[in-house]
Design a binder for these strands. Structure first.
Lengths: 258, 258
DNA sequence: CGTCCACCCTGACCTTGGGGCAGGGTCAAG
DNA sequence: CTTGACCCTGCCCCAAGGTCAGGGTGGACG
């Protein structure tokens, strides 16, 4: 029986695990004590003191990499460094609080990551009799729009609300939904495209595209992503959109290519 | 030039790094898209939607391991899980705030991890003319005491304050400090031990050891650690302590062994 | 005397959310 | 033809330890 505490004892006294003590040894935060005849580490009170100091700082959130320098430095640098650590901790707390706020908004009103107003618009779509798949697609388009051009998202919503407030436009939208199942060479596609472009051209407020959108780098790519979302799953809708864009371009409207 | 966005583009649009997108692929949070003829990943709008959803949740602090299940579950489980995440986040924030408070106390009054009152006592020691090494040793002993028997630390301090308030006892302490440099067989050691024990026995309030201390598991070990701290560096002090303990035990005081 | 259990040893791999680097292929422009 | 900006895979790295494997020790019990 040798003198000194075993690693399990110092660990228990300091309130850490054995593994943690060994970890501190590897990081040279606490010096390795002498070993007894069977190779066990035997700790004295000085080691305990050091271990308690390290654990106190670590428990307060000081990164282990800094603790060594901190404890071996003078009191003035010690205080200074502590202040620094405290500042960083405050930043982190504020960041977490911001995160929690985001989460809270998500949990409260947002349906799969959209703000309240967008959800209302989507609900109105459903009330108008649009199918779940169609509504889901529009929802995804909104998610895309919000991510790709956040600064015009609000105006985007206003436009959608205007469109939903126009019964004639809603009727046309319903035909668009039906069109998804039509053949690619169905003559109704051309008719519908014509009707849509006529409506849009005579009610330009339904069509306006903000300058900010155009000012963005990759505006065309962003536009394409939002506007041609899911077209791969509905070739007729793609065709319809293509015809519509051609009509609008022919009338002088500037629509990004691709 | 193939259709679809490259990984760099989706990453930029979603506000993450390329590396992060690939990381999400490896965790199966976002499906791997088709590759083009040169093996590049080509992303469509659906991938963008998914990526944005993942990033939004990840940015809010939801662990990546949970995001997959969350997005693929129904809205009710989604909301429920979000609440759970929010709760955990709140816990974490409170923990960090507590840490910051500890840090703040450390930075404010504590000299190398001791509360204000202990620092005052140590300062008084220095004012009484004790050497820096001696004061440092007492300080470490206090750190040890606080770690090993926190619930009696306050009474420990009271006792020290009492001792410092007794000029006769302070004089004896000073001789103890001097004694560190004496020879092991110096007859003054025995005299000093006798004087100390006489003083303590006639002023029991300087000596009392709380019942809580004794009630602790490993009380003897804890006592030894605190009381024999640094004795390895001052053999004469060890000898002095040994003599003192013998005197006290002979007078019926119960002192833990080892 | 043997056996059991708790403790100790080292070393290697796992976690989170990616970052960085090596080594090599591809694309578009000058 | 070269250059620079992308892309590919695969490997190792961070903090702060946790966990597991495989083996040695110490003290208590029968």
């Amino acid at each position: 029986m040798a003198y000194g505490l075993t690693i399990g004892q110092v660990a228990a006294f300091a309130g850490v695990t054995v593994k943690t003590v060994r970890h501190y040894h590897r990081l040279a935060l606490v010096e390795e004590p002498e070993r007894d005849s069977s190779g066990y580490r035997r700790y004295g009170s000085s080691d305990m003191v050091r271990l308690v100091q390290v654990r106190t700082l670590a428990g307060a959130g000081v990164p282990l990499a800094e603790i060594g320098g901190l404890l071996d430095a003078g009191p003035e640098r010690f205080a200074c460094a502590l202040e620094d650590v405290e500042r960083r901790l405050t930043d982190r707390i504020e960041e977490l609080i911001a995160r929690r706020a985001v989460l809270h908004r998500l949990a409260a009103g947002d349906r799969l990551l959209l703000p309240e107003r967008a959800c209302v618009a989507l609900d109105r779509l459903a009330e108008f009799g649009f199918g779940a798949a169609y509504v889901a697609m529009q929802q995804e388009a909104l998610v895309l729009a919000r991510a790709l051009v956040p600064e015009v998202f609000d105006r985007f919503l206003i436009q959608i609300e205007r469109q939903l407030g126009d019964p004639e436009y809603v009727e046309l939208l319903k035909r668009c939904q039906d069109a998804e199942s039509w053949d690619l060479d169905d003559p109704r596609l051309g008719e519908l495209a014509r009707a849509l472009s006529a409506k849009l051209l005579s009610h330009r407020e339904l069509l306006a595209m903000p300058a900010e959108f155009r000012a963005r780098p990759d505006a065309a790519t962003r536009y394409g992503l939002i506007n041609h979302h899911r077209e791969d799953q509905a070739p007729a809708a793609a065709r319809l959109n293509e015809l519509l864009e051609a009509n609008l371009r022919a009338a002088g409207v500037d629509i990004p290519h691709q």
